[in-house]
């Protein structure tokens, strides 16, 4: 985690698809280009789909950290706007 200057974090463990991605997208829209968002998500469907959708939006996936408790933190650098 120390490698990144995380600007904001968003917890998407309290919502289901497609709001998982929507909530992450909303948090990314609030950031400036180049700033980094940490997205806290549950294992399973979110881990399979959210990183892919965020990549398709053009953002840069830096790391997926396994918290070893059934959750992950996806570290994303905002690209564009």
């Amino acid at each position: 985690m120390a490698d990144f200057q995380i600007k904001d974090t968003v917890d998407i463990t309290d919502v289901v698809c497609p709001v998982t991605f929507v909530k992450a997208k909303v948090a990314l829209e609030e950031l400036e280009e180049g700033e980094i968002l940490s997205i806290h998500m549950a294992d399973g469907e979110p881990v399979q789909n959210v990183p892919r959708s965020i990549k398709e939006e053009g953002h840069q996936i830096l790391k997926l950290l396994d918290n070893s408790d059934g959750t992950y933190d996806l570290i994303v650098r905002k690209v564009g706007e």
Partner: peptide
């Protein structure tokens, strides 16, 4: 609201 408007926001 995120859920209600998710298909727009996407």
């Amino acid at each position: 609201q995120l859920e209600r408007y998710s298909r727009h926001i996407i």
